[in-house]
């Protein structure tokens, strides 16, 4: 994807540029609002990652100016202001989604994917290793054996398979399962992950859920 990143913080900007490039995207990183707006209006991007607090021209102003031109390029807001009013204001001004800083990088990738994927229909069947997950009948099989999963376990596996090769954070899993994140020390995901793991082990499935310390989980081959 061709991405425009408008972010004034040099460290954040640098890491965004590197991370997005490594994820296979073409990135143009602009450090100030004015030039950012120029680029957004003159060139075609698949998505714009827009910081809200910028020198000269604020993110909200840029957002307004892009949308008033009728430009519907997907825009993901990055904001340090996390209050509900501010998030609502961003979405009402025409942003497609927002991420509150500090976010985990996999979340940024997942959100980018979801705001740019609007037209393409998500896959019905996911496969990795021997596991086959069918969303149409909500069945999971490992080779010929059918796995008996609870709805929670099914949803966790579904997200992990959809994001195969990528890290899935606890926050992403929480939001996928219960529509909202749980910001507490109690790991409400871990117990389900453990059960899912033991069910996979039972059928000697070569695929396993790996814990990525400090970040989340990912599916990998044993």
């Amino acid at each position: 994807m061709k991405l425009l990143v408008i972010e004034d913080n040099p460290t954040t900007g640098k890491h965004l540029e590197t991370g997005l490039c490594e994820a296979g995207h073409e990135v143009l990183w602009i450090k100030d609002g004015k030039r950012g707006l120029d680029q957004a209006l003159t060139r075609q991007f698949d998505a714009i990652i827009l910081d809200l607090m910028l020198p000269e021209l604020s993110g909200m102003e840029i957002l307004g100016k892009i949308r008033i031109k009728g430009d519907r390029t997907p825009i993901l807001l990055l904001t340090a202001l996390g209050s509900i009013e501010e998030r609502v204001a961003g979405l009402q001004a025409g942003a497609d989604d927002y991420l509150v800083k500090a976010f985990a990088f996999p979340e940024l990738l997942a959100r980018l994917e979801s705001i740019t994927r609007r037209t393409a229909a998500p896959a019905i069947v996911h496969e990795i290793g021997l596991i086959k997950l069918d969303l149409s009948n909500r069945r999971v099989t490992s080779g010929v054996t059918e796995l008996q999963l609870t709805p929670t376990e099914f949803s966790i596996l579904e997200l992990l398979m959809r994001q195969k090769g990528h890290v899935v954070t606890r926050k992403m899993l929480c939001e996928h399962l219960w529509e909202a994140d749980w910001e507490g020390t109690t790991n409400v995901i871990e117990v389900h992950i453990n059960r899912l793991r033991s069910k996979l082990e039972k059928v000697r499935e070569p695929t396993m859920i790996q814990t990525v310390r400090g970040r989340g989980y990912t599916l990998g081959l044993n």
């Binding site: 500090a102 985990a104 400090g214 970040r215």
Partner: peptide, 19 residues
């Protein structure tokens, strides 16, 4: 780096709660 990421997650949680 994993240690750092873990501590950062804790920091994030604290900051979000403060906000």
């Amino acid at each position: 780096l994993e240690d750092t990421a873990e501590e950062c997650a804790g920091l994030s949680m604290l900051v979000n709660q403060l906000l």
